[in-house]
Design a protein around this nucleic acid. Structure first.
Lengths: 239, 239
DNA sequence: TCTGTTTACTTGTATATATAAGTTGATTTG
DNA sequence: CAAATCAACTTATATATACAAGTAAACAGA
């Protein structure tokens, strides 16, 4: 990362506490009080609270007024189940993928500003055809921002025809995905896309652009997906 | 500032700002500075920041150091992070409607079970063409469940070419709409729909089915809308 | 004119402090 | 002994203050 630049204290504290929680340092399931953390790290209470707040948002800890701060047993399960990738959406057993590309490319213009990267930066591009029951239903092009965590580059080495991208980001790299913005529109299949999906050029499809964000608001993923219009519907729950 | 309310100030501020953003109060897409908000609401900067932080997490606003706070609205897209009707989504000044029907009909089969009504019950059906800047962009067929509140029948008497349906439901009848489930898919325009939208039959469009629920879980509205595929995008925020 | 520099304004980080409101256990009181 | 109270803890809310770091426009000097 950008270790040479001054990293905010609350962020370093957040990282360190997260590390400790994941390594089982607080075995009794209880974190020190705010006061104790202030003393241990020689920071003010607000700095401690800001770090703890992030852990709450990620679902790692839970705080109770008058009692203390506790590690959640099912760490963020609820958060994780809501925001899902294709594999989780459809069900692991029926879905297959064919990897068309898994390589470094220059950041595309639509992602440049959300990724907050300079022109010409390299990002991981993963292009896959998605199958359900051996029928091709979508072409998906995902761009992943390695500035969020360098281990994202490890994806290049993986066999992504079997792996779930979101599982790797969450479980292996430990990135907590908390929000996604999607834009859904109608589009016609290009000849290339039509060929990949075994359809005719010009057929209607659902085009979904998705920006996925981590708990600290960094955009880690930009996906452009083309779904067969005759096979797919999107369900949205608003409140 | 000392308030005897049980609801925290930062939360009320967050709610109010959210409301304002939704209503288009900050039309230029820019929020006041922290200082200005401090002065307007007579609170400290931390309270303002805490309110704004929530809006950032929800993806409603975006903040830039040295520049200011900006509303994350992409122009030409529906702004649907809140539960809104068409009028609120697009902005009251630009939208017009033509009423094609406003009458009692038998409950359609897709709505019968969610409305929890016996076969052949009568419901209000409101069919409208929606215009933005005098261009027809959608055909909308709304079914309203009078079992939720009999005053829904009053809609039959209203001139719905000017009124916002959601305003009537919320403000006049006092129904609180809290959740909506939507299904978005691709569809081709029927000859009738094509004629209404001034397009050719068979053109691609976005078909949205929407079920809107009240706070006590009753389904009050079922809407089938056909949006021009070339004019509309749906924006969805997931978390 | 163009190029740095200053200056004012923005958000970001951080400290210190005060008060409120739940929780818990010890202490007082009937 | 039992119940009420109190004291000491916890997190939650809120204020005031300070400085850092980006941004942009005004300004000065070559």
């Amino acid at each position: 990362m950008k270790e040479s630049y001054p990293i905010p204290m609350y962020y370093r504290l957040y990282k360190q506490l997260k590390e400790r929680i994941m390594q089982g340092y607080y075995r009794d399931g209880k974190l020190p009080t705010e006061k104790e953390l202030c003393d241990e790290f020689s920071v003010s209470r607000m700095t401690v609270r800001k770090a703890l707040e992030r852990l709450v948002i990620e679902g790692l800890i839970e705080r109770k007024k008058g009692k203390g701060t506790f590690i959640r047993k099912v760490q963020g399960e609820e958060h994780l189940t809501k925001l899902t990738g294709f594999t989780e959406e459809v069900g692991e057993n029926k879905v297959k993928s064919k990897v068309l590309a898994n390589k470094l490319v220059r950041v595309p213009p639509e992602a440049k500003s959300v990724f907050n990267l300079p022109d010409g930066s390299l990002v991981v591009m993963l292009k896959r055809i998605r199958y359900i029951d051996d029928t091709p239903v979508a072409v998906e092009e995902a761009y992943l921002n390695p500035a969020v965590d360098v281990r994202i580059l490890n994806i290049l080495e993986k066999d992504m025809s079997k792996e779930s991208l979101y599982r790797i980001l969450r479980k292996e790299i430990g990135i907590s995905l908390v929000r996604a913005d999607e834009i859904i529109e109608v589009a016609e299949l290009s000849s290339q896309q039509a060929k990949l999906l075994n359809l005719k050029k010009g057929k209607c499809a659902l085009l979904r652009k998705r920006y996925t964000y981590t708990s600290d608001g960094q955009c880690v993923e930009y996906v452009v997906s083309m779904y067969r219009g005759d096979k797919f519907k999107f369900r949205v729950s608003r409140s």
